[in-house]
Design a protein around this nucleic acid. Structure first.
Lengths: 231, 231
DNA sequence: TAGATTGTTAATCGATTAACAATC
DNA sequence: TAGATTGTTAATCGATTAACAATC
């Protein structure tokens, strides 16, 4: 064969990754990071599949969709996986973000230092409650909402982490959108209404909990699923 | 037709709700709660569908699968929806749980008071780090791991909320499982290995973030999806 | 009654899996 | 070369949507 890797690069762009595929790829990224730390420089689809409890074919298909090519008999180069997924998952891009709402969850998020790994830099933390203004959370001084507008403009922030109560969520969202926020990581258990060009990711903890409890009760009553994931 | 509603009740049990369906139903539950608070006593599939950005038919199918019957021209009784979803989502069951790991996230979870709504009662909060032991978080005194075993036995706890670092996650899980924990709400970004009869729900924030950023970048580059959700 | 809304069956669509060819 | 592992095409499966009948 006469090509090395240059001409198949285009495919990367067109692949419409499904939500499920994206989740699996994020997991693959984590696995690959781990493998790298352990000194391995390749991973194969079987290992990844086992860790994700899915079919190896599916992993290979996801890899292909993400524009990652492996080598027969070898697997995927960890370096390739990390580099390409960096791009596909958009992890390599640097983005500024603000946190709005400093209840317990907002405070935890403000103090969480794992975001930087994903290219997110928190440049401001806001709360409407004056009692909270001035507190220091994870190196950030909590600012009043009045300051939010100018900060968004100065840093050209387009990403907001929303951790306000349900009652304020929609209103705050509308305000943020009108100030040019284009992506919202929503921790309030409401379905936000936003224009089509604004991206929302809901992190609905109550929903996650409900699902856990449901499955727990199901297993308790009916026993574990007949078909074990991948023993 | 000659039946009222008694004989179609059985169906409730067999319906294998998919993960996606479960998520939608959890959202329906929230919507119905809201409607109830606003004084409405019915909701129809169109309203719900709009709020969830899905097809009305899908809502009706989910309702049917959950064993909820509506009335033509009226919709679903809010009371019916809440009562039946209480059961289906297992919200009405009361369960004791422990929180393991009291970093920022664990602390936020310990202080979060929304769990009780879902029938979960936190009966103990633990950390391996002695520096954290004795702190009070949301009304709970942080206990050392040594106390964990007996507390699990005394309360017959089967649900654990895991908020330890990645490095400790699998080990802690193995320990908890050996002590008879049967459901784990996992906040560490690792895929835990557990026996088939143990239920795990992953709340992988990094994964959520990766997805948000990916979509944000996509929209920024290619513009919003051609097919608007449900304008 | 006429109209609105549910409930269900059939059609479509997309995602996963199986089979196998390609290739290092 | 023989064997392992990727990559791809075809088959299956499940979930969503469309069409329409049932019913309040």
């Amino acid at each position: 064969m006469d090509n090395t890797s240059t001409d198949r690069r285009q495919r990367t762009e067109e692949g419409e990754l499904s939500k499920a595929a994206l989740e699996r790829l994020a997991l693959c990224y984590q696995m690959a990071t781990r493998k790298g730390e352990e000194g391995q420089d390749t991973v194969n689809s079987a290992e990844l599949a086992q860790a994700l409890s899915v079919d190896p074919t599916l992993v290979r298909k996801d890899m292909a969709a993400a524009g990652i090519t492996g080598r027969p008999k070898v697997g995927y180069l960890v370096a390739d996986v990390l580099k390409q997924l960096d791009t596909v998952l958009g992890l390599s891009s640097r983005n500024d973000a603000i946190i709005v709402g400093c209840g317990h969850l907002g405070a935890a998020l403000a103090a969480y230092n794992g975001f930087s790994m994903y290219g997110l830099k928190v440049v401001g933390v806001f709360d409407a409650d004056f009692a909270k203004v001035g507190q220091v959370l994870g190196g950030h001084v909590v600012l009043p909402m009045e300051k939010c507008r100018s900060l968004i403009e100065i840093f050209r922030v387009e990403i907001a982490i929303l951790a306000v109560p349900v009652s304020a969520a929609q209103e705050t969202t509308d305000w943020l959108v009108s100030r040019n926020i284009r992506a919202i990581w929503n921790f309030a258990p409401v379905q936000l209404r936003v224009p089509h060009d604004v991206v929302v990711r809901n992190e609905n903890l109550a929903q996650g909990l409900a699902q856990l409890i449901h499955n727990y009760n199901r297993v308790k009553t009916h026993g574990p699923r007949t078909k074990p994931p991948h023993a």
